[in-house]
Design a protein around this nucleic acid. Structure first.
Lengths: 187, 187
DNA sequence: GTCTATAGGAAGATAGAC
DNA sequence: GTCTATCTTCCTATAGAC
């Protein structure tokens, strides 16, 4: 249900959000980035919060795509799990953009409508479920749901620390690998 | 360096930020909350961003105070560690306010000056160090630094999920308790 | 130090032509 | 579907009296 034009605008929105935050996104600035007029943005997305809401969906779809690619590169169940989580902690432009935007959307949802919060909760749940499944593939006896929920929350916490300059990327990745090991060791 | 009036205003600012976010903070609204005029706020804090910067220092000082109180209530080393971390996941007005503001600080630092980022990194580091020490008191042989960094990042991740409506508070607390157990079990 | 009143400027949103 | 032009609202910040 997203036209080419809409995709173009949402791609630009992710770039702007990654650069200035949801809070810093100005419709006029986005229009310039996308090479369209502000009126067109309102035409396609109704209003600013509609735009943000649609962009959130867009970002989480892209994250799913990244994750799928990452899984494809793994050659065993353990590697698949590591890939699923470590993918979010990578300094390639696309991933960094996506992670930054995701963190922003999460943070701004604290003050936004139930609509945005629900969408975010659904995306989160779906990610957790996928990770739980990957954990079961490695350790069928584990409490996979809890471990998955912790590991994904850990990824978000580490990612936010990385992006806010409190933690070096390589250190964040090392901590995450350790966290995976710890969860898989535990009953 | 903070007069009574300034403290009054910053306390009100934390309440407003917890309710509307840093981006949602309106100077006029803050003036009403604090029971002063907008002009007085500019008189004391120069401008909006000066106010926010000072308020964020105020928040991290308060977080340290909460943690100290929590530690005092514990009766053994393990309880001390749990208190230090679980304190941040509590739905009392003061803590929720502080957690919300802290999350806002972290999220907005992604796009702010090095000054703010450095202050945040220092506060984070100091928290991690305290937690690492508490871990060593329970398990002297543990890799306390890594565990502390993961557990505090986990707290932030869970807290953000709670505040953004993706996770029930009691579930977040349960996951955190589990996380502490898992880290203490591991070598 | 503190207030009232207001200047001045963004930024979201829309009207109307093409 | 898309643009140019503009309206209106809202908000930061200051001037000036007390």
């Amino acid at each position: 249900m997203a036209s080419d034009r809409q995709v173009l605008i949402m791609e630009a929105a992710v770039r702007v959000i990654a650069r200035s935050g949801v809070r810093g996104l100005r419709v006029e600035q986005l229009a310039a980035e996308a090479g369209v007029s502000t009126a067109l943005i309102y035409y396609h997305f109704k209003d600013r919060s509609g735009l943000i809401r649609r962009t959130l969906d867009f970002v989480s779809d892209r994250a799913v795509a990244y994750t799928d690619e990452a899984i494809a590169r793994a050659d065993d169940a353990r590697g698949e799990l590591e890939q699923m989580l470590l993918t979010e902690l990578q300094d390639t432009p696309g991933v960094r953009e996506n992670s930054t935007a995701w963190g922003e959307l999460r943070a701004s949802a604290v003050f936004e409508s139930d609509d945005l919060r629900d969408a975010l909760a659904r995306s989160t749940r779906s990610w957790v479920t996928d990770v739980a499944e990957a954990i079961r593939a490695v350790r069928p006896d584990a409490n996979a749901e809890d471990a998955a929920e912790r590991l994904t929350a850990l990824v978000e916490g580490l990612s936010e620390r990385w992006l806010s300059g409190s933690l070096a990327l390589e250190r964040a990745r090392e901590l995450l690998r350790g966290g995976i090991a710890v969860e898989l060791d535990a009953g």
